[in-house]
Simulated scan of single mutants.
Amino acid sequence: MPQKPVEIVVYGADQLCPSCVHLPSSKETFEWLEAAISRKYTNQPYTITYVDIYNPPNEDDKSRFAERVIDEDMFYPVVLLEGNIVGEGSPRLKTIFAEMEKFGYQSAN
Score class of each variant (00 low, 15 high):
78 V>S: 12
54 Y>E: 12
54 Y>I: 00
79 V>Q: 07
43 N>I: 02
57 P>K: 02
81 L>P: 12
33 L>R: 04
58 N>Y: 09
35 A>I: 03
85 I>N: 06
54 Y>R: 06
88 E>F: 05
29 T>Y: 02
76 Y>S: 04
12 G>H: 07
109 N>G: 12
76 Y>C: 05
58 N>K: 09
108 A>E: 09
96 I>M: 05
86 V>K: 03
1 M>W: 13
1 M>L: 14
6 V>C: 10
58 N>R: 14
44 Q>A: 14
71 D>Y: 09
30 F>E: 00
73 D>L: 14
26 S>Y: 04
34 E>I: 00
38 S>I: 02
12 G>K: 08
47 T>C: 01
106 Q>V: 11
19 S>N: 10
40 K>M: 15
82 E>W: 06
97 F>S: 10
43 N>R: 13
71 D>P: 04
10 V>Q: 09
102 K>G: 03
35 A>M: 04
74 M>N: 03
9 V>H: 03
102 K>Q: 12
11 Y>G: 02
57 P>W: 10
103 F>N: 06
39 R>C: 09
77 P>I: 05
51 V>G: 05
62 K>N: 11
75 F>R: 15
104 G>D: 00
59 E>Q: 14
101 E>T: 02
91 P>F: 13
23 L>Q: 10
70 I>E: 13
108 A>M: 11
22 H>F: 10
90 S>M: 07
53 I>F: 11
84 N>D: 12
67 E>H: 07
36 A>Y: 08
85 I>P: 07
29 T>F: 05
80 L>P: 00
93 L>E: 10
96 I>T: 06
63 S>C: 05
103 F>W: 10
47 T>W: 07
75 F>G: 04
28 E>P: 06
33 L>V: 02
42 T>S: 11
73 D>P: 02
58 N>M: 12
8 I>E: 00
64 R>P: 00
13 A>M: 02
94 K>E: 15
76 Y>M: 01
41 Y>Q: 01
98 A>T: 07
31 E>L: 07
108 A>Q: 07
66 A>C: 11
49 T>P: 00
63 S>I: 04
73 D>T: 08
96 I>W: 08
10 V>D: 00
78 V>P: 07
15 Q>R: 13
20 C>G: 13
79 V>H: 06
57 P>F: 08
36 A>I: 01
71 D>W: 12
40 K>I: 09
19 S>Y: 13
85 I>E: 15
92 R>W: 07
20 C>R: 15
20 C>I: 06
65 F>N: 14
59 E>Y: 08
35 A>W: 10
35 A>Q: 15
